[in-house]
Design a protein around this nucleic acid. Structure first.
Lengths: 187, 187
DNA sequence: TTAACCATGTAAAAAGTTACATGATTGT
DNA sequence: ACAATCATGTAACTTTTTACATGGTTAA
């Protein structure tokens, strides 16, 4: 998922202007882009050129005309494709790409979502093992004092705890999806 | 903390070459920089121009000469200054700046570290409240299905759980620092 | 009257990634 | 024979940020 895919995700909710998109980027903390003018307005121009969105110009009195963008069929296809990608490794570092895929997963079946979640779960488990190993290899140089040794231990433990909390969250997620299916089946 | 400060942090352990620094950036997952040639070698040149590091050239047979950089007094001052900054807001998003400050906090007193931790703790608590509020304001547009509503709930809950796990970690950290002090006092 | 909101966009700079370039040594 | 390690650096490109630019409306 790159920023243009997220824009498509928003436009798949409803048609919007660049201005509205900017506000969403500013409000939603899990998106790693600032959503500045350059990203949004340039992005929209490109998306239009690629025919993934279409614009309607709405003139206003005393204010610059609104350009309201809506997603095209090709845009929907592109969104679905981006969302269905196997979660990439950077998700485990700072750009939580998996959350973005999940947020716009409405275009996938529940089974496909489960698969994505499963893949991400495995990546997290591997990373947890890797990090716990890494603790044993902390460079000896960082033991100038018992305090520094303790602090570096905590730096690694931070990551371990985050990964564990992520795994807990993934279990809740899978449980919730099952629960939803159960309810729908019983209707 | 920007990448040059982290380089200073490493050189404060011991003098190193660009090649060694690269490996550290590659190995340590909590650092958000890839540590590619451009960043490291350009960074070192700039640091040298700013007189924050000094280089010694060590010729080798059959291999390019090593350039071993060491931190200067001015460099140590700069590092301490960077580490002592109040943790910035981006720490709460993706670039976990606080971890970097903590990792190189050996130049601070335990009291100063406690202060940093306290500040970061407060920011996390505020952010937790803010995020829990935000859940109540999730745009109604994202409820195309019960499934989507559930998923967006989980996207927000991911952040809540991370913040809670961060607060737990901060308590462990403060507890550990107290414990260390107790031990030193009892000698 | 000052700030925030509405609404668009562009320019320049900074930061980051990927690929290029060299070339000996060591292990599989 | 091929890949990895050692060891430096540069060039081209992409991404992101910050600042510039305009200008009317509304609420404190």
């Amino acid at each position: 998922m790159e920023i243009k895919d997220v824009i498509l995700g928003f436009l798949d909710w409803k048609p919007m202007t660049g201005y509205e998109l900017k506000k969403l980027f500013a409000d939603l903390d899990f998106l790693p882009w600032s959503g500045n003018n350059n990203q949004i307005y340039k992005g929209l121009l490109e998306l239009e050129k690629e025919q993934l969105v279409r614009k309607t110009i709405i003139p206003q009195e005393n204010l610059p005309a609104q350009k309201r963008y809506s997603i095209t069929a090709a845009g929907k296809k592109q969104l679905q494709c981006a969302v269905a990608q196997p979660p990439d490794a950077e998700s485990l570092k700072w750009r939580h790409g998996f959350l973005q895929q999940l947020a716009w997963s409405e275009c996938l079946t529940t089974e496909e979502i489960r698969q994505l979640v499963g893949q991400f779960q495995k990546q997290n488990e591997n990373e947890l093992v890797k990090t716990q190993d890494a603790i044993r290899n902390v460079p000896a140089t960082v033991r100038r004092s018992p305090r520094e040794a303790f602090i570096w231990g905590m730096v690694f433990r931070n990551r371990v705890m985050h990964l564990q909390s992520e795994l807990n969250w993934l279990n809740l997620l899978l449980g919730g999806l099952t629960e939803l299916n159960r309810k729908l089946d019983s209707l």
